[in-house]
């Protein structure tokens, strides 16, 4: 099997996870114009909660559900308790708060769960599948990763585009004042938006943990790549975030594969700068359309 094919498959799986992280960031950005720098650390924390349950005898799937539900809850709590009081302050205040949260979670995780590197069980085998006699670099767990990210994206798409709740959430994000005049409880929509974003982040956490191993800062890199993907996609477009995340996955896989994994991070930076030089608003921003 050609090297390019292996790297492409690898990039697809990694990209799905960056896409989930990018989507989580974009969901919050669209609703509150804030980049939640604690997104990765929150996902790290919920992944630890899942591992804690599994350590105490829970089956993998219960751990998986615990990660997602605790993500949902954590997002709602963070919005209500931390973000809400500074809602009317300049956006920079909230950004600094999310940086504080990042430090907070990374500091309490070792206290709560121990600071040593842990392995996280995968849901399915991580050994490559056998197709037509030869082994490919695509395991059942990779298929699960890809499948669950796609499933979550479809669910979110249906929620936002096909339901009244989603319509209210979109309206609140685009224009809170007008939305309130239309009787929409914008505060609740914001809480729900943070909760959903945090759940998508938590999904990224449990999906990447078996490959990356689990330690208090293991999501930092995913956050950076997810953020780069989100910026590539234009920050305000969910579809752009997904495509941006996938592009990051492919690009980093090729850079790592052909030039050595030391250059991955530099590669991410180069891509970001290159794209922003050509398209300062990202690849899929709605902004340009609106100016017409």
């Amino acid at each position: 099997m050609s090297r390019f094919f292996v790297l492409t498959l690898n990039g697809l799986t990694q990209g799905a996870i960056y896409a989930a992280m990018a989507l989580a960031l974009v969901l919050i950005w669209r609703a509150t114009k804030v980049i939640n720098f604690a997104q990765g650390a929150m996902a790290m924390f919920t992944t630890y909660l899942a591992l804690f349950a599994i350590d105490h005898g829970a089956p993998y799937w219960l751990g998986f559900v615990i990660a997602l539900l605790s993500g949902l809850l954590l997002g709602a709590i963070v919005e209500r308790v931390i973000v809400r009081p500074v809602e009317s302050a300049p956006p920079l205040n909230v950004v600094i708060l999310t940086l504080g949260l990042l430090l907070f979670f990374e500091a309490i995780a070792p206290m709560a769960f121990g600071g040593q590197i842990r392995s996280f069980p995968p849901a399915f085998s991580i050994v490559g599948l056998h197709l037509g006699g030869s082994q490919v670099a695509f395991s059942p767990f990779d298929a699960f990763t890809l499948g669950s990210v796609v499933a979550v994206m479809i669910l979110l798409l249906v929620l936002f585009q096909k339901t009244n709740l989603g319509l209210r959430m979109r309206a609140s994000a685009f224009n809170p004042e007008v939305s309130r005049l239309l009787g929409i409880r914008v505060g609740r929509m914001l809480t729900l938006g943070w909760a959903l974003a945090s759940m998508v982040g938590a999904l990224a956490g449990v999906l990447i943990a078996p490959t990356f191993l689990l330690y208090p800062t293991f999501m930092d890199q995913v956050l950076v790549y997810g953020f780069t993907g989100a910026v590539l996609g234009g920050l305000d477009s969910a579809m752009g975030a997904v495509i941006g995340g996938l592009l990051m996955g492919f690009a980093l896989s090729y850079v790592g594969g052909y030039f050595g994994s030391d250059l991955e991070t530099v590669g991410a930076l180069v891509i970001l700068i290159a794209v922003l030089m050509v398209r300062p608003r990202g690849l899929f921003s709605l902004q340009r359309l609106r100016e017409v």
């Binding site: 309206a171 939305s179 005049l181 239309l182 009787g183 929409i184 609106r290």
Partner: peptide, 23 residues
């Protein structure tokens, strides 16, 4: 009805109208 044609520009005409009475 606020001043200055305060539509939700990113949403469709139909979505704007529906939002009026969703509550």
């Amino acid at each position: 009805v606020p001043q200055g044609q305060a539509v939700l520009a990113e949403l469709t005409v139909d979505e704007n109208l529906r939002l009026g009475g969703l509550w």
